[in-house]
Amino acid sequence: HNLTITQGKLFFHYNPKLCLSEIHKMEEVSGTKGRQERNDIALKTNGDQASCENELLKFSYIRTSFDKILLRWEPYWPPDFRDLLGFMLFYKEAPYQNVTEFDGQDACGSNSWTVVDIDPPLRSNDPKSQNHPGWLMRGLKPWTQYAIFVKTLVTFSDERRTYGAKSDIIYVQTDATNPSVPLDPISVSNSSSQIILKWKPPSDPNGNITHYLVFWERQAEDSELFELDYCLKGLKLPSRTWSPPFESEDSQKHNQSEYEDSAGECCSCPKTDSQILKELEESSFRKTFEDYLHNVVFVPRKTSSGTGAEDPRPSRKRRSLGDVGNVTVAVPTVAAFPNTSSTSVPTSPEEHRPFEKVVNKESLVISGLRHFTGYRIELQACNQDTPEERCSVAAYVSARTMPEAKADDIVGPVTHEIFENNVVHLMWQEPKEPNGLIVLYEVSYRRYGDEELHLCVSRKHFALERGCRLRGLSPGNYSVRIRATSLAGNGSWTEPTYFYVTDYLDVPSNIA
């Protein structure tokens, strides 16, 4: 807008934040220059609390790290170098490059900038070799853009010569660093050979998330399962459950009422301010606690030095998902009996873990797994792929695949051998790939016309006998059925096997 004052003059007093240069501009645009008398524009009460600059400061050096910015700028000295009290560095987070010096300023003089007072450097006698002032900004957020400017702080001049310097606002972004852990990993099994893994992005990506790394490792069953005799009275049979499938998407929606109208769909109840505040506090606490764990609990591995020492970490090797089922080394339970199943799973520490690289999504279907087997899954978020990966501390989750139908069934015939004193040795093959492992066998036998009897055969007993022995049988026709019990439950009964026990007292003698 054009402003013209045809008559009258300007009068400025007691404006401590208004620089004289701005008042002189007002004289020019209003056409009143030359009308004012000496005392109409006070030299001592206008701009006496402001830094009124008329020179431009330029930054000469900028260096960044993930949490620091090192700045240096060209030296500046007023005509009387004693008038320079120091520099004021202003900075704040700036997602967009549209910041002005006066953003967030209120009537009390406060604003949204963080201000650092910096002492002037030592003055050199040689004007050509003056030290460049600077400042190291610490405690910054990774991968965050900051708006920065600097200006001088000078003393009051009796001659009211307006001098000083100020830089333009520059924008500097800190470097990326390792992201925080992925949030809320959930693993479920939808079949006997697959596990579905879902997660949420890290709360602090500290860069642009480029991919996720998912490692999985087959877990050995508890050692007590191999040692305890679950045929003993009072000892509860062990059981394991597989990871249940995901709930429906509708039930997972946030901010939804727990109660549904019987007449149909209901609208979600909005969260109160107290609920939102509580969630923010919980989120802040979780982030602080995660940072504490990362800094205190997890110790970084030592990389190899120039002395030739090897990095103890196993090298990563990509495998196809079809090879995942046989990740671990199978060892027989008892070496003397080769027909026992290889369900003991000690994992070799030198073995390469299978892994998958996930790009542009937060889910993965891990296939080719062994049925009813526990897996430990390790999830890392990465925001750099080359020249070397920059990934987060791992988040861990466990899951067990679903049982395989008929995996616990005894394959092959049940054979028998009759000894003296009416002892019958029953023999059968253990299931080759049971659900988890076989903890015991149930032997059901009966003599024709009598009630059915049951015998429990422990895992250890089966390994020693290759089956079991029935003792003290009365003469007669017998039928026997056997079924295995694994961590997933009972298998199917075998087809009945028949044998006849004679009275050993009636056996004919070869003595003449």
Rank of each mutant, 00 (worst) to 15 (best):
S398V: 07
R240K: 09
E404N: 08
F285A: 04
P387T: 13
L237N: 12
T373I: 14
Y498C: 06
D273V: 06
A395R: 05
L379W: 03
H425N: 07
Y478W: 10
S363Q: 09
E224I: 03
H371T: 10
V359G: 07
S458L: 07
R459G: 04
A335S: 10
Y500H: 10
R459V: 12
K317P: 09
I377Y: 10
V397P: 15
V507Q: 05
P245W: 09
Y500I: 12
I418V: 12
N295D: 08
Y498P: 03
L470I: 15
S274L: 06
G472W: 07
F289Y: 03
H416E: 04
H425M: 03
T340C: 05
P403V: 02
G322I: 12
D409W: 12
Y375H: 10
K236S: 07
C468A: 14
Y445V: 12
V439A: 14
P314I: 02
D273R: 08
E247G: 12
D450H: 08
H454N: 14
G368I: 04
L225C: 05
T343M: 09
E281M: 15
A336S: 12
E281C: 02
P205A: 08
R400C: 08
D291V: 03
Y230H: 02
S444N: 01
V331N: 13
Q429Y: 15
N360F: 06
H425K: 09
N435K: 00
C267Q: 01
R218V: 10
S392T: 00
R466D: 11
G264P: 06
R400Y: 05
S315V: 09
A394V: 12
V423A: 13
K317G: 06
H454R: 06
C269T: 05
F289P: 01
I482K: 01
V393G: 01
D261M: 06
Q219R: 15
N208R: 04
I410G: 05
T347M: 12
R218Q: 15
A405R: 13
K278V: 04
V297I: 12
W216E: 04
T272A: 15
C391L: 05
E404W: 08
T241F: 13
F337I: 12
T494M: 15
A463Y: 06
P244Q: 14
S223V: 07
A394R: 07
M402K: 12
F285Q: 02
Q219L: 11
R400A: 08
E378R: 08
V296G: 14
V507M: 11
T340R: 13
R400G: 08
V327W: 03
P434M: 08
V327L: 10
P508R: 02
N295Y: 07
S479L: 04
